[in-house]
């Protein structure tokens, strides 16, 4: 699969309610091997919500732009790969007991 097939897909919970779209995909880069393992997907209310990624970084300048973009990206969250039940061409389905994590980068 290629990344752009996953981006923008609608995300549904276990009973089929739409809870957002895939805005980004998070990876962990192994220090030694350099391999990039998928950790989870970032979900936002709309695909453009993560524009410039201010909600995930510690950068807060210029303050007005940062605050505005964080406000636009409110309600975004991270779901770990284990909480993804299936990926279909028309959407990503999550497990019943999926957990929402903060989208902030460590």
């Amino acid at each position: 699969m290629i990344l752009s097939e996953l981006l923008q897909l609608p995300v549904l919970d276990a009973v089929g309610t739409r809870i957002g779209v895939v805005t980004d995909v998070r990876f962990a880069l192994d220090h030694d091997s350099g391999d990039a393992h998928m950790l989870g997907v970032l979900i936002g209310r709309r695909s453009r919500a993560t524009f410039l990624g201010y909600e995930r970084k510690t950068e807060t300048a210029p303050a007005l732009i940062a605050r505005f973009l964080r406000w636009r990206a409110r309600g975004s969250f991270l779901v770990l790969l284990d909480d993804v039940r299936s990926i279909e061409p028309d959407g990503v389905r999550l497990r019943t007991d999926y957990r929402r994590y903060s989208p902030e980068l460590p």
């Binding site: 990876f27 880069l29 220090h31 950790l39 993560t50």
Partner: peptide, 14 residues
Amino acid sequence: QAPSVDARVVDARL
């Protein structure tokens, strides 16, 4: 916060 991992974390689009 998501459980921490011993690796550098990046977001593909960002």
